[in-house]
Computed example of a mutant assay.
Amino acid sequence: MNKPLILVVEDDKAIRKLITTTLETQGYRYHTAETGGASILEAVSRQPDIIILDLGLPDMDGVEIIKKVRTWSNVPIIVVSARSEDRDKIDSLDAGADDYLTKPFSVEELLARLRVSLRRIRYDSKKLLKDAAIFINSGLKIDYEAGCVWLDGDEVHLTPIEYKLICLLAKNVGKVLTHNFILHEIWGNYSNDISALRVFMATLRKKIEKEPSKPKYIQTHIGIGYRMLRVVDDSEII
């Protein structure tokens, strides 16, 4: 079986070398691009499994690259950028990025994010997330056809909104979903009430988290949105 192919889009030579050396030591295959135009050509011709993307490229903003790639591909995109403002993170995630790391970052964190993306690819390829009738994540079970949710074998009674929220998170497990994305998917174009979303998320957590203050399944990204964690052997994969 071929090792995963990673496209590294980074114009800073030192950071590009750090990332590629890390990938090489872990057995990943990789190609690199230093400009937005080259990255799109590489993405089309190489068909990478994951794209690691810097936003500050010399010829094109990284958000525009994300939008272009998303017109034809669902390849996971991990943004690695010096931009640390919430607005930059939200714009990238809303454009279609799957994750966002702020420079400087640790090698261990980058590798962890890669593992999450690769795990999501494997589940997608087996149609266990979006197409399967049943979703299982550690002790959490969702039967999409029956419209029922169980936690550690006990049925959890959810309101219609809570059920929609947990299904949306489950079908995007491992991916950060912005407030705007969730509001649009659950309520359509008629709501921008983030405070209401927080209330529903809090009530959902009380029903599926043994310790809502230390969530096992639903992670908050402050000022950005939420992500359902894939739990393996009762440990969180972040």
Rank of each mutant, 00 (worst) to 15 (best):
E211G: 06
S235T: 10
H184V: 13
F200N: 09
R46Q: 11
A33E: 01
I19M: 07
G36E: 06
V231S: 01
K89T: 11
K68S: 07
D12F: 14
I208E: 03
I194G: 05
D143L: 08
R16E: 02
M1S: 12
V79H: 12
T203E: 13
P160S: 13
V173C: 09
D91V: 02
V231I: 15
K210M: 10
R87W: 05
S191C: 01
G225I: 08
T20V: 11
G147H: 08
L183D: 03
I166A: 04
K206E: 10
V80M: 03
S45T: 15
D11F: 05
I19N: 04
A133N: 09
D131A: 14
P4Q: 08
Q47E: 04
Y144M: 06
D12S: 08
C148L: 15
P58K: 09
K207M: 00
E34W: 15
T20R: 01
L114E: 00
F181C: 11
I121S: 04
S106Q: 03
E209H: 08
I142F: 08
F181N: 14
E211Q: 06
P58A: 01
G139A: 02
V149G: 13
L101K: 10
I194S: 07
P48Q: 00
L18H: 13
D86H: 15
G56I: 02
K3G: 03
D131H: 15
S81Q: 11
A38C: 09
E236G: 07
T159F: 14
K67W: 10
I194A: 07
A82P: 15
T220Y: 01
K3D: 04
E42Y: 14
D11E: 09
L101T: 13
H184P: 15
L128I: 03
R120Y: 09
I222M: 09
E24A: 13
I161L: 04
K141H: 02
D234T: 08
Q219V: 13
G147L: 08
I186D: 07
T22F: 11
Q219P: 05
R29G: 05
I182F: 11
K141V: 00
V9S: 01
I136C: 01
S39E: 10
I52C: 04
W150P: 06
V79Q: 00
I6Y: 13
D49M: 07
A82V: 15
